[in-house]
């Protein structure tokens, strides 16, 4: 295995551990966060805050040290109809399941049947978007 592959494997395991520890692999925590009219569950806010504080801090701390070796792609500040429409479609699917891609894939490992159906359908959706756009767009990689 190359160093890159080992690095991404470790990153995936850490990412999954973060999702399990924070309770984000339970779709009811996500639906509870989106349910502003019912018993609102603020847990997802804490998860986002923890992730953003650490990642933003690390980028600032390590960025200047590894500059040249590990620059991030240019920041995307373009807001267009495609971005908003895509985010809205994602939001509807998120609300209809309580799953976003990361937690769904972790749940696959736990053997949750609901995750299996969801991930299979998600792959169809990803491939459909690829066929629809006709060109590769590494969007998620370069927000």
């Amino acid at each position: 295995m190359s160093r890159k592959t080992i690095g991404t494997l470790v990153a995936g395991a850490l990412f999954g551990a973060g999702l399990v520890v924070s309770g984000m692999t339970d779709p009811r925590n996500v639906i509870g966060f989106l349910d502003f009219s019912g018993h609102w569950n603020p847990r997802l806010v804490a998860v986002m805050a923890g992730a953003v504080v650490v990642y933003a801090g690390m980028l600032r701390l390590l960025g200047p040290i590894v500059r040249g070796i590990r620059p991030l792609p240019a920041r995307n500040n373009r807001v267009d109809a495609r971005l908003v429409a895509g985010a809205a479609v994602f939001g509807v699917g998120w609300g209809l399941s309580g799953y976003c891609p990361g937690p769904a894939i972790v749940s696959l490992g736990s053997g949750a049947h609901s995750a299996l159906a969801f991930v299979a359908a998600m792959i169809v959706g990803i491939l459909a978007a690829g066929a629809f756009s006709g060109r590769r767009r590494s969007g998620c990689e370069t927000p």
Partner: peptide
């Protein structure tokens, strides 16, 4: 869940990101 999965897959790629990326 099947409908939701298709929407999440399609929407995240159209919008260029999901909860982690964006």
């Amino acid at each position: 869940l099947v409908v939701a999965g298709v929407l999440v897959g399609f929407g995240t790629r159209l919008g260029g990101g999901c909860t982690s990326g964006h």
